[in-house]
Design a protein around this nucleic acid. Structure first.
Lengths: 129, 129
DNA sequence: CAGAATCCTCCGGGATACTG
DNA sequence: CAGTATCCCGGAGGATTCTG
């Protein structure tokens, strides 16, 4: 796969990129069912576990924990435990995590700009067959 | 999930978006293992089935067919059969499909800009535990 | 409140064989 | 060349139960 067309001006494809494609890595990172939802929920500011639980409708405790761990592991958010009773844990995006807002915005723009044509194409395609 | 923060200037969250989140739709569309790879391979211009097969290293015939069908169904590429012997089939991105280059570029930029910090965070995190 | 542990299901996707 | 048709497996992710 040739990434040259997509690279920032003045940057070239390094050998490392051929080994481990950064675009695929990123899609693996945010391509799952919940990661993007959690990131978007955290954009306005820090949130607690239960708040995220309510915000990400349909998520299970297991997957929320799993998703948060993954983001924490990659340094995209911080996890702060307040030693109170009952416990209080706050999640907050780091700079890299919040920087995801840019690409996600682009993706959303593409979506709203083309979703009508996509839906139309899909309906037409299914009408045949 | 509140998408307002990510919307184009002057656009607001419609009821339809709450029903069927366009961001999630898009991630479902491109979040699988091969779609983005195929799209990137097609950016320079039309390609034949076997060319894509060679370009998308590791893909199976089954999945290439499946991926191409999905993109065709949504009107993101066209499939042109030349009635020759042996058969020749060309795939080409449509305007909406090619427009994915923008968001993908943003995603790639984010990736190259932050992959070092992500990798470092991951290593540090795993060193603990 | 914020999880950890366990069990189970579904399906994305690979391997292989066959064909117009 | 460009597929279709089967079979099959691993892992993402849900449901449930238990705890500091």
């Amino acid at each position: 796969m040739d990434l040259a067309l997509l690279l920032p001006a003045g940057m070239s494809v390094t050998p490392a990129m051929k080994e481990r494609c950064p675009l695929r890595d990123t899609l693996d990172r945010i391509g799952d069912r919940w990661t993007v939802i959690v990131v978007v929920l955290l954009l306005p500011g820090p949130r607690r576990f239960t708040e995220l639980m309510r915000g990400a409708e349909g998520i299970s405790q297991r997957m929320l924990t799993h998703t948060l761990r993954g983001l924490e592991r990659d340094g995209l958010l911080t996890r702060t435990v307040h030693a109170t009773v009952p416990p209080k844990v706050e999640y907050d995006l780091t700079a890299p995590g919040r920087a995801l807002a840019g690409p996600l915005t682009e993706l959303l723009h593409w979506s709203v700009r083309h979703q009508e044509s996509v839906l139309a194409a899909r309906t037409a395609y299914d009408a045949d067959v």
